[in-house]
Amino acid sequence: MSLYFLCLILFCIGLYCVLRKRNIIKIIVGVGIIEYAVNLLLILIGYRQNGRAPISANDQEILNMVDPLPQAMVLTTIVIGLAVMVILVALALRIYEKHGTFDITKIRRLKG
């Protein structure tokens, strides 16, 4: 149970990082932390104490396997996270190119 709470704490650290930091790169790192906290939670959901790899074979009984579906889901979310991360980094580079700074308080042109 404490592992789940550790995931939650990691999630909150990432959220804090996104909300409080001013440096664009740190914000991107925060997004990464959030994504990995959720991935970790997904893996934990499928995990079983002393479970074994979910490979089925003819000569083996299916006993105490970990759930393979969350692992497949995590693989997919990692790929998605990679795409999001690449787009964020590309945007950050472009912003640095235009403004010469990574500080978000100095590049506010839009009022939102």
Binding site: V86, V89, A90, L93, R94, Y96, E97
Partner: peptide, 13 residues
């Protein structure tokens, strides 16, 4: 190509 795109972007700058 994503790596390449990021590297070339900084190269231009």
């Amino acid at each position: 190509i994503t790596f390449l795109a990021l590297v070339l972007l900084t190269g231009k700058r």
